[in-house]
Write a protein that binds this DNA or RNA. Sequence first.
DNA 1: TATTATATTTAGCCTATGCTAACATGTCAA
DNA 2: TTGACATGTTAGCATAGGCTAAATATAATA
Lengths: 123, 123
Amino acid sequence: MALQESGEMYLETIYVLSQQKAAVRSVDVADYMNFSKPSVSRAMGLLRDEGLLKKDTGNDLKLTEAGEILAKRIYERHTVLTTLFINLGVDEETAAEDACRIEHYISDKTFDAVKRHMMKCNK
Amino acid sequence: MALQESGEMYLETIYVLSQQKAAVRSVDVADYMNFSKPSVSRAMGLLRDEGLLKKDTGNDLKLTEAGEILAKRIYERHTVLTTLFINLGVDEETAAEDACRIEHYISDKTFDAVKRHMMKCNK
DNA sequence: TATTATATTTAGCCTATGCTAACATGTCAA
DNA sequence: TTGACATGTTAGCATAGGCTAAATATAATA
């Protein structure tokens, strides 16, 4: 079944953390998201079941190719929407918070339209 | 506690239907939202508990003042966001679908910025 | 190596919010 | 007035996704 906001947030977090440190562990995700370790543990199991997270390696969390594609997709929405809102005059913190929720609910079509619009304005 | 997406959708639906017909009943809401009658029945009880729906009158659903303020707030987000997306080149159906989800997640600050931007562009 | 500290998992609770099945209450027409 | 259809409610199930407490694993240090 399609990923919900929750799953997308976990993927995005693993992706972001993996760009900051060599190895990402469950506890890092828990700290970053302010969730309990059991919540993260279960979520990681679900992502594994969905084939978005690798099963093998010790305890390090590694996205599969499919997982990384999805994570990047969400993360792009995050950065583009944040920039958009800042361009509209919203303060950085609010812009990021809104982007972080909306990124899960905007369709491809609408997101593409938003991106095109931003390109045009930045020419 | 703050209203979730679900509660906001019920309020908005009651508001929209009340502009189309004299009396709105649970079954009208169920038909409109494609939800079962028990789901609507329970949701109406919760809205009443929250003071957003009047308790008295027979079976007609009437928003309280607080409920109407919230409903209008969401509905405005719906219409403004839909128009925004259409202006960006998104087809009407997709624009409305996206607006219908995003309306629950956009902050006041960001929504106001979006509105200001649209005013400017329509001058 | 043995002990302690850190990570992870298991078990099970809770809330929100959809559902069906079954029951209750109208309301209206024969 | 009564039977039938519409409407509403009660009871209880399911899923998603947080949580704590407690048990395991794993790692690091005395």
